[in-house]
Amino acid sequence: MLLFDGLLYLDVQKTGSTFVTAFLQACCRRPQIHYHQHDRLRSKLPAGTVRVISVREPLAQYRSLFRYGLDGKGGLYHRLKDAGLTEVYQPTQEAFETFVEILLQPETAPLLHDSFEPVARKFDMGMMSFRHLLLAVKWPLATLKRLPRDGLVAAYPRLRLWSEALRQEDLVADLQALVARHPDLFDLEAAEAFLAPKARINRSDRGAELSTDLPAPLMARLLQREDLIYRTFYPHLLPEGQPT
């Protein structure tokens, strides 16, 4: 979580949050009040605060996590290592699909987050939706415990903290639009310079050839478990005829 006077950023993991944080710290005109990476909001915000969250298509997040683990990095890699599951980290499509299957199993939930299992079982929820909700809703664990099993989708619009969303797939364009909507918050020249095209550095190529074209049953399960994110931010990726 990154908080300025008048601006809150909820930095969900693996959604371009490092880039967004650097942009805001370089370009926001307002004084920074607090920063704790991937932390939750626990205090009341002043009226008028612009509340921003970053999101990413869940399947792309699974792929990114898998590629990160191929380099032996990340908290998830070490949790799976402790559970004796690191043999899944092979740079093959079959291994990636097995990785997705493992993460979608409710039995794996305790390995992914200490508080995830009851939420995963109650709402049939995937890891990416859970990570999102930890930051998108105030007092998320208590809130999810209180909600009925079938009440999350209907309640989410009134429970969410954010008013603006940045999609990792269109991050530069969405940041430019954010600046245009709130010019009083940003140094416009600094924002333009920061968002100018740059060469990407220190990018790992391991797993770059992995496809997100999963077998139909596995993809259907992923869509079901990550329904909240797809329904809210990526309804165009839902199967034709599925309600949004």
Rank of each mutant, 00 (worst) to 15 (best):
L3C: 08
L3Y: 02
F4W: 01
D5G: 03
D11L: 01
Q13P: 00
T18M: 10
F23D: 01
L24M: 15
Q25D: 08
R30I: 00
H36M: 04
D39R: 14
D39K: 07
D39C: 09
R40P: 08
S43M: 04
G48I: 11
R56T: 04
Q61V: 15
Y62L: 12
R63V: 13
G69S: 12
G69E: 10
L70C: 07
G75Q: 04
L80I: 05
G84H: 09
T86C: 11
P91F: 04
T92M: 04
E97V: 11
I102M: 15
P106Y: 02
T108S: 15
P110K: 10
S115F: 09
P118I: 04
V119H: 08
F130T: 03
H132R: 08
L134R: 15
A142C: 05
D150T: 12
D150E: 14
P157I: 08
R158H: 07
L159H: 02
L159N: 03
L161C: 03
W162V: 03
S163E: 14
Q168Y: 12
E169W: 09
D174T: 10
L175M: 13
A177I: 00
L178Q: 07
R181Y: 06
F186W: 07
F194H: 07
R200H: 12
R203G: 06
R206L: 14
R206A: 13
G207D: 06
L214P: 10
M219Q: 15
L223H: 12
L223D: 00
Q224N: 00
Y230A: 12
T232E: 13
H236W: 08
E240A: 15
Q242A: 06
T244V: 11
T244D: 02
